[in-house]
Amino acid sequence: MANILSQIIRGLRKVGHRVGDQIWRLGAGARLFFLTLTYSTECFRRPRLIVREMYFTGVMSLIIILVSAFFVGMVLALQGYNTLQKYGSSESIGVLVALALVRELGPVITALLFAGRAGTAMTAEIGLMKATEQLSAMEMMAVNPISRVIAPRFWAGVLSMPLLACLFSMVGVLGGHLVAVAQIGVDVGAFWSQMQANVEFVDVTNMLIKSLVFGVACTMIALFEGYDAPPTAEGVSHATTRTVVISALSVLGLDFILTSFMMV
């Protein structure tokens, strides 16, 4: 009896410890976020720093984003046609593809791919810089690592994400166009005019808002995980995994919250 009780207490203690740990991490992440914002002036005075990081986050993610977008668009068109033709409205396929991409898939999949491609790279890079004492070295040279290393990467990520999301949606629509018009034979005019009649400009701006928020979340998570990683090979690899998991969950969660606000 006492044994079971002590096991329950041990279990509860474990849960409490876990929760406490997560809350601590949340606080530490928020702290890093605010520090990043306050130390951002330096990298705005030297935009070259941001441009350089945009190359490594944005341009390096370009290929995976474009290829995925093309396939997603094509699949959407195929699947959409399958269902829509049953109701005799296969020319609405453009609407389906465009709305799905602009409202949801564009920003969300871009963010997920970004977390997988650029986010993990960022975490690993920062984690290794920490493990090899590069951040300490910077500090000892009277250079603040947050303003020199963290902030440029943060802004590069935040700026890259909306650009990539726009590209994703547009290329997706083109992929859908290819399948719908060239392969299935939907009328070109109907495809575009139906799309234009039903996609509002608000949808496009909402997409930008979403991808900006995702950009902040994904980049900050990646940076925090790297900055917080234990300075060992194992620590860095764990942090990289966590970046993907936490980014994916936050993107999907945030997407739900944002969508429910935008629907009002």
Partner: peptide, 10 residues
């Protein structure tokens, strides 16, 4: 892409 989305798609 943004302008294309705004004018051609939207």
């Amino acid at each position: 892409a943004f302008f294309a989305l705004a004018t051609k798609v939207g």
